[in-house]
Amino acid sequence: MVKSKISSKGQITLPKRVREALGVGPGDEVAFEVREGEVVLRLRKRVSLRDLLGRFRGRVAYPGEEGERKAREEAWAQEP
């Protein structure tokens, strides 16, 4: 078991062993899910616009920044 303390601002530091196990670094995002009194931490993988649009190959034009943000959020929400 790896432990970390909560700061006065409610922040935690992910211990090195956890960061290495998840393969996360500065700028990466994680998602927290509360399940029956426990917290599950998941890496939120970045999805490039090219990958998102590649799913629709030739059927859609560039959605703009707002459309890109919404598409990325939807893709993140669908991760298992």
Rank of each mutant, 00 (worst) to 15 (best):
M1Q: 13
M1I: 12
M1Y: 10
M1E: 13
K3F: 15
I6G: 04
I6W: 06
S7W: 02
K9P: 02
K9A: 04
K9H: 04
G10E: 07
G10D: 04
Q11H: 10
I12F: 03
I12C: 04
T13M: 11
L14G: 01
L14V: 02
P15C: 05
P15A: 06
P15G: 04
R17Q: 13
R17M: 13
R17Y: 10
V18A: 07
R19L: 05
R19D: 03
A21G: 09
L22F: 12
L22G: 07
L22S: 06
G23T: 04
G23F: 04
G23S: 06
V24C: 01
V24I: 10
V24N: 05
P26W: 09
G27L: 13
G27I: 10
G27T: 11
D28W: 00
E29C: 12
E29S: 15
V30W: 02
V30G: 02
V30F: 01
A31M: 11
F32S: 05
F32E: 08
F32K: 03
E33C: 10
V34R: 13
V34C: 12
R35N: 11
R35Y: 10
R35K: 14
E36M: 09
E36Q: 12
G37C: 04
G37T: 07
V39T: 08
V40C: 10
V40K: 13
R42W: 00
R44M: 07
R44T: 07
R44A: 11
R44F: 00
K45D: 13
V47K: 09
V47H: 11
R50K: 15
R50G: 09
R50D: 14
D51V: 10
D51C: 07
D51F: 08
D51T: 13
L53D: 05
L53N: 07
L53V: 02
G54E: 05
R55C: 01
R57I: 06
G58P: 03
G58R: 08
R59D: 08
V60M: 00
V60E: 02
A61S: 14
A61I: 09
Y62V: 03
P63W: 00
G64C: 03
E65P: 09
E65D: 14
E66V: 02
E66Q: 01
K70G: 03
K70F: 00
K70A: 02
K70H: 00
A71H: 04
A71C: 02
R72G: 03
E73A: 10
E73P: 00
E73K: 08
E73T: 01
E74N: 05
A75I: 01
W76Y: 11
W76H: 13
W76G: 10
A77Q: 00
Q78I: 12
Q78D: 14
E79K: 04
E79D: 09
E79G: 05
P80W: 09
